[in-house]
Amino acid sequence: MSIDETFDESFAAPADAGQVDRAAGALQENGFTVHVVDTAEQARDLVLGLLPTDQAVFTALSQTLRSVGIASAVDESGSFVSVRRLAGQLADDDLDGKLRLGATPDVVVGSVHAVTEDGRLVVASASGSQLGPYSAGARKAVWVVGAQKVVSDLDTALRRVRTYSLPLERRTWQAQGGDSFIGKILIVEREFLPGRGTVVLVREPIGH
């Protein structure tokens, strides 16, 4: 089946204010710290203010982080201890070393592919490299989530992953001569350590 045959563009539409508010409330009940902002610029300023400058920060690969300038601010400005910059100092063939650096950072910042109105996070990955720090490897996790990723329930979240997020990712990789697939899916039901997980919900669409 071709990418176009599986693509559901309806998942690009942002959730309404009520859906975002319900997701925010449910996330808080599930142990997450939640911030709701109106714009991508507000999300960027908030997240950069939350990140420590003296601890290792890993930016998970994310169109959301790239589009709002968080990835470049962390990895290129010199103001943060960037795991990606540290990994770049290792030998090109030291894949294990690079993976270990990303597996247990002090802080991971990234996004997810869907958030349900009952407060669950869903993220898919080909390699799974960001799923370890998301679930437990990082001492703190920060996720930035656009309003188009808020969906009604888990079934809809998984459908969004397969019929919207994956096709977009495949298009990106195929334009570069590669491809993508779903290797692993993480569903975060709740956070068991107070203050570990922070979700920044944005009332406009950002990222995929």
Rank of each mutant, 00 (worst) to 15 (best):
V109A: 05
T104Y: 12
D93K: 09
R85L: 05
D94C: 09
G78S: 01
Y134H: 07
A124L: 13
R66S: 13
V81R: 11
W143F: 15
A136I: 14
L95R: 07
T104L: 07
S77Y: 04
F80H: 12
V115W: 13
A60S: 14
V112T: 15
Y134E: 10
H113A: 13
G132Q: 12
S125G: 09
G97L: 04
A141M: 09
A91C: 00
F80T: 12
V115Q: 10
T104F: 13
D92P: 00
L99S: 08
G88H: 05
V115P: 06
R66Y: 06
Q130N: 01
A60P: 10
R66K: 13
T116K: 11
K140V: 00
H113P: 01
K140D: 10
L121N: 09
G88M: 09
V142C: 02
Q63W: 11
P105I: 04
V109Y: 11
Q130Y: 08
L61G: 14
Q89L: 11
S129N: 14
V107Y: 12
V81I: 09
D94F: 10
L101N: 04
S82D: 06
V112Y: 07
R139V: 03
R84A: 02
S77G: 10
L86S: 12
I70V: 15
T116E: 05
Y134G: 08
